[in-house]
Design a protein around this nucleic acid. Sequence first.
DNA 1: CACCAACGGAGCACGCTCCA
DNA 2: TGGAGCGTGCTCCGTTGGTG
Length: 258
Amino acid sequence: MTLVSPALDQIRLDVSTRQLFELLPDVSFFIKDKAGRLIHCNEVHRRGIFRYGNADDLYGKANHDFFPNALANSFAEDDQRVIRDGESIVEQCELNITSAGSLSWFCTTKVPARDCHGKIVGLVGISRRLEAADHRIGDFELLSAALDHIQKNFSQQIRVQTLAAACQLTEATFRREFEKLFRMTPLQFILRLRLHEACLRLSANSDSIGDIAYQCGFDDQNYFARFFKRTMNMTPSEFRARQNPRQDSTRPENRSEK
DNA sequence: CACCAACGGAGCACGCTCCA
DNA sequence: TGGAGCGTGCTCCGTTGGTG
């Protein structure tokens, strides 16, 4: 694969190392510039996560070009911690979207990328499906009962107490272990899952926003709309319109456009 | 008039943070 | 590790505006 970005030349990562990552079947490898734009990635990253066959379709794009705002904001914050603060993120578990549009667990490591003077010019990262991240599975298994419960019941009310009991941990210990692994509270995690599911359903079908809110575990459509706007910077109907511009051209709110 | 979508306020329950 | 207090998530109201 050819490298298209001049910014990549600044980063001290020799060609054989990049080639090595091209050969790994289960490791997604990527390099981003200082602005968080993708400047290099391997085959797994292109096809496994993004379904992009051509590298040119990916390079120069940032998180917001690939993910819903809620996910993109979270990833961008992480990127900036690495690029701006020089902080490494090691083996962070996160829920992400696969090429098939489903959710899956990934284990991600990001470190600052430096030029020959040691100055940070971007970041280098790897990400693996959690099933492949063997040495982290111990931590994951500790909480697996809770994660199963969340994924099966995210459309219903979930209490932290219930999740802790499922893992045979006290509530306080469960919360600490959870935050250590996911860098977010259990409730934030559940909300992110619900929001992501709502985004998928808003994009994929024409159910009313109220129905989708209930399907995704929001008992109150009003609360759902407020939470959605706060997180995504747009209302659910605006999000749907952006995802399905053609389909949405028939919707009432767009008919007034001249 | 009915329905849908979005917004705002009030109050309660409970999740989270802090500290011993 | 667990308890206490605080902050906020969530629910239940109501209202407004647009459309059929």
